[in-house]
């Protein structure tokens, strides 16, 4: 597999994906492939994407994130997004964007609780 876009952490059956880089279109697309490969290779049943370091999520980035969640779902895997910054949440809401197939959580702990409960 090609080099990873972001380093990920395997925690229980979950894959933790902390995004700590600027998400340009190319990066977010490569991230999608990376996540899908890691689900496949590591027998993951939940993905937690931490976006607390991401300042801007525009329509395309949110679309690719939703799309990734949909693909993960097809592989039997739930996707939880945590740490959305309040101003990013307001911006997404004002644009009318819905994060399809994604569960949002207040924190990493909350994300794990939500995934625990889903099984």
């Amino acid at each position: 597999m090609k080099s990873k876009v972001v380093p990920t952490i395997k925690l229980y059956d979950y894959l933790l994906v902390p995004i700590q880089i600027e998400l340009d279109d190319n990066t977010v697309e490569r991230l999608q492939m990376q996540i899908l490969h890691e689900i496949h290779e590591n027998d993951v049943r939940g993905i937690i994407i931490d976006v607390s370091m991401v300042d801007v999520i525009d329509s395309y980035i949110s679309f690719v994130l939703s799309e990734t969640a949909g693909m993960a779902k097809a592989m039997g895997c739930h996707t939880v997004l945590c740490g959305i910054q309040p101003q990013v949440a307001l911006t997404l809401a004002q644009m009318g964007i819905r994060l399809k197939d994604i569960i949002t959580a207040r924190s990493l702990e909350d994300a794990i609780d939500i995934l625990d409960e889903l099984e």
């Binding site: 279109d25 999520i57 525009d58 910054q85 309040p86 101003q87 990013v88 004002q94």
Partner: peptide, 17 residues
């Protein structure tokens, strides 16, 4: 405000794309 900064940056991102 921080929220408006984010909205402006997001709008520019969409325009550039």
């Amino acid at each position: 405000s921080l929220a408006d900064v984010t909205k402006i940056a997001t709008a520019v991102s969409e325009l550039a794309r």
